[in-house]
Amino acid sequence: MRLLIVEDSPALGRDLQAALSRDGHAVDLAGDGAQALAFAGAYAYDVLVLDLMLPKVDGWEVLQRIKQGQGAPGVLVLSARDQVTDRVQALNLGADDYLVKPFAYDELLARILAVSRRGGSQLPLLVAGALEVDPRARLARVDGSVLALTPKEYGLLETLLSQRGTVLARGALFEHLYDAQSEASDKVIEVLVSTLRGKLARAGLPDLIETRRGYGYVIAA
């Protein structure tokens, strides 16, 4: 899942980016509202985690402008503003959820996943024959046995399976799995596909991921 953290506290922003990246997400960080709008215009995000008190362009305007666009991402407002009127205003402007600071990281992560499911970017359970992928637990199982996947391998498998039957180009997969600051090239997707295929083959699913030469990768419908 690709996330954008919009937070003007450098320390909190970096902590959130690091924690969510460790959980296998591609995470970009914007320190003000203008940068947030630029990121949102350049990349397709599943969820924005949005502070309201921002320099340059405040969070209220960011929320309103993002939600006016087509294919708008889910938005979780994360703010120290704890009045009911603030929550109501944010929800009326299109926010999908509202979490007050200070917060527990586990709750934040659960709410991000809930917002992503609400937007249709993740399904409760993804199944392909003996393979089951549970986005909430971030686990993949074959015949009930858990596959030992790295966060990126899991993210690749979930992305392909959630769009089963759709050929996804290497560049599109890279953009979904890696943040804007990544120094890797999109050729890393070939390595990920190779290692994931190896683990699936050892679990009895050698032909699950197909290569469409010149187009990309697909898990056939």
Rank of each mutant, 00 (worst) to 15 (best):
G71E: 03
R87A: 02
V100E: 10
V75K: 08
K101N: 06
L76N: 03
L76K: 04
Q83W: 08
I66W: 11
K101E: 07
G74H: 05
G74A: 14
V84T: 05
L78N: 03
L78E: 08
Y98P: 03
R65T: 13
V84H: 13
D106T: 12
L108M: 07
D82L: 11
I112S: 03
I112T: 04
L76H: 04
K101I: 10
A114R: 00
D96R: 01
G71H: 14
G94W: 12
E107D: 15
K101T: 09
V84F: 01
Y105T: 01
I66N: 04
Q83D: 13
Q68Y: 03
D97C: 08
A104N: 02
G71W: 00
V84Y: 03
F103R: 11
N92Y: 02
L91M: 02
A110L: 12
L91P: 07
A80E: 09
D97W: 00
D106P: 09
Y105H: 04
Q89M: 02
L91K: 13
D97T: 09
Q83F: 03
Q89W: 12
A80N: 06
R65E: 15
N92A: 03
D86Q: 00
Y105I: 11
V115T: 08
S79C: 06
Q68G: 13
D96Y: 02
A110Q: 14
D96N: 04
A104F: 03
A72W: 03
P73S: 04
L108A: 02
V75N: 14
E107V: 02
L108R: 06
V84G: 04
I66E: 12
G94D: 11
Q70S: 15
L91T: 12
T85R: 15
A104W: 10
F103K: 01
V115L: 04
L99E: 07
A110M: 09
A80D: 00
D106G: 09
E107R: 09
A90N: 10
V88Q: 14
Q70V: 11
E107F: 10
S79Y: 14
V115E: 00
V77G: 11
R87P: 03
P73C: 03
G71R: 09
L78M: 04
D97A: 06
A72V: 06
K101Y: 07
Q70R: 14
R65C: 05
Q89P: 03
R81V: 06
V88D: 01
A72S: 15
R65L: 14
P102W: 05
D82F: 10
D97Y: 02
Q89L: 15
D82K: 15
V100D: 00
S79T: 15
P73H: 14
L109P: 08
L78Q: 06
D97H: 13
T85W: 10
A104V: 07
N92S: 10
R111M: 05
V115Q: 07
Q68T: 13
L109F: 15
D86T: 04
L108Y: 00
G69I: 03
L99P: 14
L109Y: 13
V100S: 09
A80K: 00
G71C: 01
L99Y: 07
V84C: 07
I66F: 00
R65I: 08
L99K: 11
V75Q: 02
F103P: 05
Q83E: 15
A90K: 02
K67N: 09
A80V: 12
K67L: 06
Y98V: 12
V84L: 05
